[in-house]
Amino acid sequence: MKLSTKGRYAVTALADIALQGPDALVSLADIARRQDISLAYLEQLFVKLRKAGVVDSVRGPGGGYRLAKGAAGTRISDVMTAVDERLNAMGCDGKPGEGCGGVEAACLTHALWEQLSSHVYVFLNQTTLADVVAGRMEPCPAVPDFTAMLEEEEATA
């Protein structure tokens, strides 16, 4: 699993649209300016988001994009899938009857990566754009200050 700029920028752009209100049509140029994202890159992402039914578009003067299902109906997992982000940390493709690395059996760590993938999917599937823009993203109870933990690990390395 690798979270690339595709997923990050797609969620950021859609959060920007959500903040403009449910009926607002938002131009990609406005999003690009407010979020400091390349307009050309947004255009590529929004082709995929529109095809996946995440956004609707209106052409012409005053046109733009809006969330097809509103902020509360837009799951982050759907956004990530629409822009081809891989939510699977496993090294194999998980096809029935096929193992990892071209062999029939699963690799030694298959269950570990499968569980990680499941947790990430559940989290992103339960989280909507409404949660993101309303500030309802609470720190993980197990690691309430993840950034500080990473900084501490880097300092001791």
Rank of each mutant, 00 (worst) to 15 (best):
K51D: 10
V103L: 12
C92H: 12
R86D: 15
K95S: 11
D84I: 05
G64S: 01
A68N: 05
G99M: 01
L124W: 13
G97I: 09
L87R: 11
S77L: 06
G97T: 12
P96Q: 07
L124R: 12
K48R: 15
A82E: 00
C140Y: 09
E98P: 05
G73F: 02
P141C: 08
N88F: 05
V83Q: 01
R59K: 11
M137T: 07
A106M: 13
Y121D: 13
Q115W: 07
T109Y: 10
A106L: 12
T74M: 01
C92L: 13
H110A: 05
V132N: 05
V143K: 13
V54N: 00
A52H: 00
I76Q: 01
L49T: 06
G91Y: 09
G97S: 06
T109L: 14
M137I: 14
W113G: 01
G70W: 03
L124D: 11
A134F: 05
S118A: 12
A134E: 15
A106H: 10
G53N: 08
V132D: 06
D131H: 06
G62V: 05
M80T: 02
E104Y: 08
C140N: 15
S118W: 04
S118K: 11
V54G: 04
V132Y: 03
E138W: 07
L124F: 14
N125Q: 12
P141Q: 06
V122Q: 07
V120G: 02
W113D: 03
F123D: 05
C92V: 11
G60P: 04
L87I: 12
P61E: 10
L67K: 09
M90C: 15
G94Q: 04
I76Y: 00
T128I: 00
V54Y: 01
V54H: 03
G63L: 07
E85V: 10
D131Y: 00
R86N: 15
R136Q: 07
N125D: 15
T127H: 05
S117E: 13
E98W: 04
H119I: 08
F46H: 08
P141E: 11
G97E: 04
